[in-house]
């Protein structure tokens, strides 16, 4: 290991809050002590992490409050050091951290809120979808309908929760102050890019399960086999609802 590599490694350890002793002899000590100088960088590391997570998950930040969010960010920094010079996907493990801390507690819903907020961010980065060619779909022979494979919009993210997910999100947008009744039931949300914005729509549970199943890339016949019976029963409504939420962008029909 060359001198530069060793120095950078010692810096990284010290700035992450690990032992700073190996770095101290390498630092100039005039006027301000090296340990104080290291503290500026430790502080930066924590703040960069906190701000990146807060940028991705502002509703979670409001829900847990400033002090708790700072602690969560420190947990995150320790558990998931950044692996990229681009912070765009830095927060991807945040829902798992929240689940690990709060699953089964009265704050059980936090992980799902983070999943919704990350889905919104993801949708911003994806292309806009085309629209389903209904004329072509109408031309598919009835006996081939089971072979049809639907493709979802690239920006589509389906997020479901046993909590009123979208209602909680909405109650934390600027100007909103209402309370949310957590016992009001599950909510399933279809998130996707529309033009310059991200759109979220509530869908029902059957459409949500169907959407997740279609995401596997199987034909309608194959997807059918994966669906629970109560969803099979309402398949027409579920497929229509998913389409109305912008969930289907293309279809293909393999050669028979």
């Amino acid at each position: 290991m060359n001198a530069l590599h060793r120095l950078q490694r010692d810096c990284e350890h010290a700035f992450r809050g690990a032992d700073a002793a190996p770095l101290l002899p390498d630092l100039v000590g005039k006027a301000i002590p090296p340990a104080t100088r290291i503290e500026v960088y430790r502080n930066n590391a924590r703040e960069i992490c906190r701000k990146a997570l807060a940028n991705s998950c502002p509703v979670v930040e409001q829900l847990v409050g400033d002090a708790c969010f700072r602690s969560l960010a420190r947990e995150y920094l320790d558990a998931h050091p950044s692996t990229s010079g681009d912070l765009q996907h830095f927060g991807r493990e945040f829902p798992a951290i929240l689940d690990a801390l709060y699953s089964g507690s009265e704050y059980d819903y936090l992980g799902d809120i983070a999943r919704l907020e990350l889905a919104i961010e993801d949708a911003l980065l994806e292309p806009e979808a085309g629209t389903l060619d209904l004329d072509a779909l109408a031309d598919v022979p009835p006996d081939r309908l089971g072979d049809v494979i639907f493709t979802q919009a690239p920006s589509l993210r389906l997020v479901g929760s046993r909590y009123p997910l979208l209602s909680i999100w909405r109650a934390h947008q600027p100007g909103a102050e209402e309370s949310v009744d957590l016992s009001s039931g599950a909510e399933y949300v279809a998130v996707r890019r529309v033009g310059d914005e991200v759109e979220m729509r509530l869908i029902d549970r059957a459409a949500f399960i169907l959407g997740r199943a279609l995401n596997g890339g199987g034909s309608l016949n194959q997807v059918w086999d994966e669906l629970p019976d109560d969803v099979r029963e309402v398949l027409p409504g579920a497929l229509t609802a998913l389409s109305l939420a912008g969930g289907l962008s293309h279809f293909s029909l393999p050669e028979s």
């Binding site: 700072r70 059980d108 957590l182």
Partner: peptide, 21 residues
């Protein structure tokens, strides 16, 4: 100091711990 107990607007979410789960 670690503060992992939410102290934000979680209180605006009512009926949480009993029914939803």
């Amino acid at each position: 100091e670690y503060i992992l107990v939410p102290v934000g607007t979680c209180e605006r979410l009512v009926n949480g711990s009993t029914t939803a789960r």
